[in-house]
């Protein structure tokens, strides 16, 4: 009787220890994975699913990177192969291991017409459907790899120097980047040629960043969710007929806001220090 009691106690203890160690392992492993996937400023290949989804669906096979490096157009004049745009994250890259990415200052995306990297994806982490135009053809211009932004303090065009390197490098010349002409008041007789990026056209290929002449590029590509703001649904462009439709048929005087402040007369609260 005492012996079986002892055995049961031992069994319980071992079970408890196993469960505890499994939980410990699971927590450490989860923690590592959670950190490993937290690399938000990474540029993905064209057609990539939203980052969160991409990190799971990408099976880390490297077919996209191989297709990118081995495409016909990626050869030097003497026939030797150039380095591809897409790299596979390895230890030390601080990105989820095995996922494809690119760094514009090293090799930007050249926006191949046939997009060799996308159709080869076996897991559809690179979503071909997102790159089809109205004629159901692959259209690299529909890619949204990122969005270029200009840091105007370090961009020499904003100093009044003439530089349109990014504008010239852009594959969507005069669409994704336009030049805004302004008078240079300092000299009185020169013009500023200021680069302006248009987020509805820019694909984030990074050719502008690669071409930028400053020591550290003044124009650079970030993933779109990091380089874009959001006005929110409650702002309606009243002058835009289509946007105005979001407000419905309501007239201005029909729209009333009810909050703590609207309960009182303005003369009451404007003269008091009330915190809301």
């Amino acid at each position: 009787m005492a012996n079986s009691d002892n055995n049961r106690r031992k069994f319980m203890a071992t079970t408890l220890q196993s469960v505890g160690l499994t939980a410990l392992g699971g927590m450490l492993w989860s923690g590592y994975c959670d950190e490993a996937k937290a690399s938000p400023l990474v540029l993905r290949p064209p057609g990539a699913l939203p980052e969160e989804q991409f990190l799971d669906v990408c099976i880390k096979c490297g077919l996209c990177a191989e297709a990118c490096a081995n495409r016909e157009s990626n050869k030097n004049k003497d026939g030797t192969q150039r380095e591809g745009t897409l790299k596979m994250a390895k230890g030390g890259n601080h990105k989820l291991i095995g996922t494809p990415f690119f760094i514009p200052t090293e090799v930007p995306c050249y926006m191949c017409d046939d997009i060799p990297c996308v159709p080869v994806c076996p897991s559809e982490a690179l979503d071909m459907k997102s790159l089809l135009n109205e004629k159901k053809e692959l259209d690299i211009n529909k890619a949204e790899m990122g969005l270029a932004i200009v840091h105007k303090e370090s961009c020499v065009a904003f100093w009044g120097l003439q530089c349109d390197a990014c504008y010239r490098a852009c594959p969507l010349l005069d669409e994704a980047i336009t030049l805004d002409y302004q008078k240079n008041e300092r000299t009185g007789k020169h013009a500023f040629l200021l680069p302006v990026v248009h987020s509805d056209v820019c694909t984030g290929c990074g050719l502008c960043e690669k071409a930028c002449i400053t020591e550290k590029p003044a124009i650079f590509v970030l993933p779109r969710e990091h380089s874009m703001g959001r006005a929110g649904d409650h702002y309606v462009k009243g002058w835009d007929e289509k946007d105005q439709q979001r407000a419905g048929d309501r007239k201005l005087d029909e729209i009333e806001t009810h909050d703590e402040r609207s309960q009182q007369a303005p003369s009451d609260y404007l003269n008091k220090e009330i915190e809301y």
């Binding site: 499994t22 989860s30 994975c33 490993a36 996937k37 990190l55 880390k60 989820l96 291991i97």
Partner: peptide, 16 residues
């Protein structure tokens, strides 16, 4: 455990 962690974290856990 790898399958459970994958489900929790949302990425293929062992592949990481």
């Amino acid at each position: 455990l790898g399958l459970i962690v994958s489900a929790i974290v949302g990425i293929a856990a062992f592949e990481a």
